[in-house]
Amino acid sequence: MSTETVTPEETDVGVDTERVALYAVLGGLVAFYLLPIETGLMTSLKADPFSSAPFLPPVEQFTTAKYARAFDALGHGFVNSFLLTIPATVLSALMGSMAAYGLTNVDWKGQVGILALFIAGIFIPYQAVLIPVSKFWGSIVPLETWFEPVWLLTPGIEQYHFNVLELIITHVAYGLPICTLLFRTFYLDLNDEMIEAARLDGASIARIYRRLILPLSGPMFAVVLIYQFTQIWNDVLFALVLVGSGDGAMVTVVLAQLGNNLSSVGIGLKMAGAFLTALPTLLVYIFFGEQFAEGIAT
């Protein structure tokens, strides 16, 4: 009920108190959803996290030292995470768009079956595929062994870069089902007559995609890129199994271990690390919240 269904009664005094109560509850919910985050932020800026109530701002205890330490620990993981997330996000969006086009705007028999297989792929629990995937990259397609001369001889290219490459391909493979579905819902709404007209003009399937579909896909690319960026950046499961800790460790894997052996001293460090890790996705969320909501709600 987005229109004025309740407004006639709003003049009543009784309704006014109802409105006050409504905003009070909404405000309480804001506190509920923000408190853990706010508490983390305040704690990350205190020298001693036990010096005052955790959600109060730091007064005499103010320090940014935790951030400096967290950045030292996470910096390399940050680079790795970007190295993984950017290509994997772009690739899965592009391939998803192409697949959705081939399965939606080009008619041929049996595409329903192919599409069903894509859609079912959205729901699989990754624990059911993780051992084969790790064995696949470990012994069947061991990229790091195959490309040994490359990383031995090329300056700037390290052994772990090939683990990251494996992780990129894995994320693209498991991101494709949702990317394809998102693009498909968008392509179904495209004007069929326009595509038909281009076809009658003799444009090839590939040309229609490049000249007509791709330029129109901008809004959906925004949604899919944001969705995939958040998913891949936030992942810990594949990062842990396929790359693990060490030089190639993703920022989430480093954060999960950060400060664990420091007991209470580590809490401020953990909070600072959590904020640094969350920063890219938080920025994306703040600037592209609409698209994020659209991506998850589809």
Binding site: L29, V30, Y33, L34, L35, P36, I37, T39, G40, T43, P49, F50, A53, P54, F55, T230, W233, N234, D235, V236, T252, L255, A256, S264, I267, K270, M271, G273, A274, T277, A278, T281, L282, V284, Y285, G289, F292, A293, I296
Partner: peptide, 27 residues
């Protein structure tokens, strides 16, 4: 605001809740 936590990684929210549930000074 209500959707904000969803944009965070499980690893990040786990750190927050570890502190929320702290015995001595958790919220």
């Amino acid at each position: 605001i209500y959707l904000l936590p969803m944009s965070l990684s499980f690893v990040v929210t786990a750190q927050f809740w570890l502190w929320m549930y702290n015995f001595d000074n958790g919220v």
